[in-house]
Amino acid sequence: MHKRTLLAGAAALAALTALPLPALAQDKPPLKIVVGFPPGGSADLLARLLAEGLKNDFASVIVENKPGAGGRIALGHVKRAAPDGHTVIVLPSGPMVLFPHVYKKLDYDAVTDFTPISLLAHFQFSVVAGPASGVKSVADMLVKAKAAPGKSTYGTPGSGTLPHFMGVMFGQKAGAELTHVPFQGGGPANTALLGGHIDYKFDVVTETAELHRAGKVRIIGVTGPQRDPQVPEVPTLKEQGVDMVATAWFAMYGPAGLKPEVRDMISSAVAKAVRNPALRNRLIEQGYEPVGSTPAELATAQATDLQRWEGPIKATGVQLD
């Protein structure tokens, strides 16, 4: 091969490798999914399952835990992130529909500071009795609670979270006075429950299903309209005479100012991942009802629940600093 041909070929190769990635193939951006709770909890589990389902649509997908303040620390981080589509948050509905009614001051606006991307899944909650409680049913729990008002304690992932208000609502519906003990996530609450430091726990079913099956704790009731497939032997609260049905959702948001085309690209990738049979079945096994919505559908769900929770929260009289 002539020297001139070799030089020309080398120059062409150099020019080709110097081209930006989109000129060679479709650009795949990196994606960071922020979770406001510690590793091992329901939000973390959902985010990691979703990250696995999104890995072919992005250059990389990582999950970053920023626990604390019931998810508010993570929300503040995402609020300040550049609106370039590289940073999103996966969170339960509480911070977006409860916190605006609960906290006197929030360092974010749930409607204007974030871009709705996708409603991921619906889920229900559980009432869990620790080994030290000796309780085997909701009836047992209520007998003990009513015999010593305020002495029965229940843990949650944090003050102002959905499980916190599930406990408040349960107490009101059942006519029992319970004392709330907040933790920084479901994992620490589980540790306290196992150690006998709290009597009960209100949380997503996923958080304690394995411990229940291992006989280390006992899920005594679920809050949905029907039994949870993870623990089908556990009756609903309605079945046990407590007139309470409550569910919630997980969703993905980005910072405000996300361009519509970037928002829609991420939303489409999420919907595709959630509807994939393999991921969908894993989500169902974990007690989630998969959705994978459009941004508009998430915005509507948020607006509806923001209005729905205002009255019940005000009725509890609970307000936090």
Rank of each mutant, 00 (worst) to 15 (best):
R213M: 10
H197Y: 13
D57F: 10
L211G: 04
H122G: 12
Q302Y: 03
L98K: 06
G186Q: 08
K201G: 09
D199Y: 07
H86K: 10
Q124C: 10
A82Y: 07
K66M: 14
V111H: 11
A299Q: 15
V205H: 09
P290G: 11
V242R: 12
R218L: 13
T223S: 15
V135A: 10
G71V: 03
A214L: 13
A25T: 11
L7G: 10
S293R: 03
F170H: 07
D27I: 04
V222Y: 10
V217Y: 04
G196H: 06
A214T: 02
V143E: 15
E239N: 00
A25E: 05
F165V: 00
V111G: 09
R218C: 07
V168W: 06
H197P: 02
K151Q: 07
H86V: 04
P235E: 00
Y154I: 06
L211H: 09
A209W: 08
R275D: 14
P30W: 09
L19T: 03
R308Q: 11
I219T: 14
E177I: 04
G167F: 01
G317Y: 00
A15K: 06
A10M: 15
L31Y: 12
P163E: 10
A43L: 10
A271F: 06
H197V: 06
K144W: 06
T179M: 12
Q184M: 09
L31I: 04
I89F: 14
A296E: 15
H180A: 06
S137F: 09
T112Q: 14
A278M: 10
A273T: 04
K105D: 12
I33Q: 03
A174M: 01
